[in-house]
């Protein structure tokens, strides 16, 4: 699993890849945290559990990431490692997930300040499987 940043005028995005949709989702979440701060300085002191549900894989991804945005913006929790424990996708496309996110409290004295993410958006959103590899594009409003 891996991620890279996407260059978008005015905002920022992540392209995440993984051998399974679960891995790709985990990479997208980690990639998003890497826009907020340098993950090398983040410790795994605490774990929070988040869950999300959506009408489609795309909707699920946006809702999942917006849960993480919420926990950062409201409570300053920044994740380093994301572990999706449960991921169910129905044939209709509807899906839900539960994840443990390992990280710590954001501290401007120790953590670099990167981008302030307002939300994950539906703009240019892409969830696709090609040659056995899942690839996700998601753009954040900054």
């Amino acid at each position: 699993m891996s991620y890279e940043t996407l260059d978008i005028s005015g905002d920022a995005g992540i392209r995440a890849m993984g051998g399974s949709i679960r891995e790709a989702f985990e990479a997208a979440a980690t990639g998003m945290y890497s826009l907020i701060t340098d993950l090398g300085c983040v410790r795994e002191d605490r774990t929070i559990e988040v869950s999300a549900a959506g009408e489609s894989p795309e909707g699920l991804l946006v809702r999942f990431l917006n849960e993480l945005v919420f926990h950062f913006d409201a409570y300053g929790f920044v994740g380093k490692r994301v572990d999706i424990k449960q991921l169910e996708m129905e044939n209709t496309g509807r899906g839900r997930l539960k994840a443990d996110v390992h990280g710590e409290q954001f501290d401007p004295a120790r953590h670099s300040r990167g981008l302030l993410i307002k939300a994950a958006t539906y703009h240019g959103l892409l969830v696709e499987k090609k040659d056995g590899l899942w690839s996700l594009d998601v753009i954040f409003d900054i």
């Binding site: 940043t5 260059d7 978008i8 005028s9 005015g10 905002d11 920022a12 981008l115 900054i142």
Partner: peptide, 8 residues
């Protein structure tokens, strides 16, 4: 209005 991406 922006003309350069953040990355650029």
């Amino acid at each position: 209005g922006r003309v350069l991406s953040r990355h650029e």
